[in-house]
Design a protein around this nucleic acid. Structure first.
Lengths: 166, 166
DNA sequence: GGAGTGATACTCGGATATCTGGTGTCCGAGTTTTCGCGG
DNA sequence: CCGCGAAAACTCGGACACCAGATATCCGAGTATCACTCC
């Protein structure tokens, strides 16, 4: 089981975007450069965040991305599901209904016990992820990171963010 | 994120093997036929369970597989980790240390906040899986399954299990 | 000098190659059984 | 009838193809900016 690398990229980008002032935006190119990753590939994941309603995208020059709603209302689970999909990791293929001892399908009423256990475990995982908001994550970074990184990032943000036109 | 299909196979096989009497064994061929899956591919996963110390394998004619320890001492987590590996699903690549605002590596003391959150969520997932033992899963199947399936499986087991030689 | 208009530069978005890891298969090593033979 | 031995059959174990999904890239659609021209 492996989580898409894009989840990490998207989460880090979300924290950076959460640091924008007001309704300013930041272009994908800048986000890619900041994290040292491929720009074109990062755009793929940023679009997924837009589709999920986490980011808003503004086209054209002076365009870019910004949060679609307050950072306190965006959970880590939202980001993971936006990029990695909402499908459960475990997918029961009902192999209990195959083989020599199987009976007609309607006899298998409740879901397979293994499936139930796996899905409840995933529910615990999702609940844990939902306990972290973008705001809390950003606050954690702000308090633990090296002061030079913080000031450097703020300066870099000021240089790359695009003020809102409204 | 997707869990290997072999996890489902392994878990179902473990429940069947848990239903053997005493130290009897059952060959992989029979397990494959019972579940209607590829025999050669299933062997790959059964071997993983053997390597992990969950199953014991007996070679030669009248050989097969049996549990290496009591069913109450085998958790769903053991099976998942045996087949899918113990590596966490989320693997931090430290992209925070890349890009223009990065400083020397030793300045990044604690783990990345995102990584911490993801790993703690996975810990919750593992804990939930560890709460299900093979014994409890088998008991659940025994109480909820169709009576015809139960009797059919018992009959099938009696026909295919290999009594211990000791 | 100011307004209008066209070209321009920059942005995001979707379609297209490449590559790693899971999926599936085959053949070989090892062991117990079994049959045949000799005593 | 009993013991011995070799062949055989069946088991698991590791090495080899195949394929789907993630990874990575390029080109096209759209829009605010900017410069130029005309009034």
């Amino acid at each position: 089981m492996k989580l898409s690398e894009g989840v990490e990229w998207g989460a880090h980008c979300a924290i950076v975007v959460a640091g924008l002032t007001g309704r300013a935006t930041i272009p994908g190119k800048a986000l890619a450069e900041y994290h040292g990753v491929s720009e074109t590939y990062l755009l793929k994941h940023l679009k997924a965040l837009v589709t999920a309603g986490i980011f808003e995208s503004v086209p054209g020059p002076r365009g870019g991305y910004r949060l679609a709603r307050d950072a306190a209302e965006i959970t880590l689970l939202d980001i993971v599901e936006a990029i990695d999909g909402k499908q459960p990791a475990f997918r029961c293929t009902e192999i209990r209904q195959r083989g020599p001892t199987a009976v007609e399908a309607c006899a298998y009423r409740g879901p397979c016990g293994i499936n139930r256990a796996m899905l409840s475990a995933e529910a615990a995982w999702r609940q844990a992820l939902a306990g972290h908001t973008l705001a809390s994550l950003a606050a954690g970074v702000a308090t633990t990171a090296d002061p030079r990184v913080i000031s450097g990032t703020q300066e870099w943000l000021a240089r790359n963010e695009r003020k809102s036109i409204s």
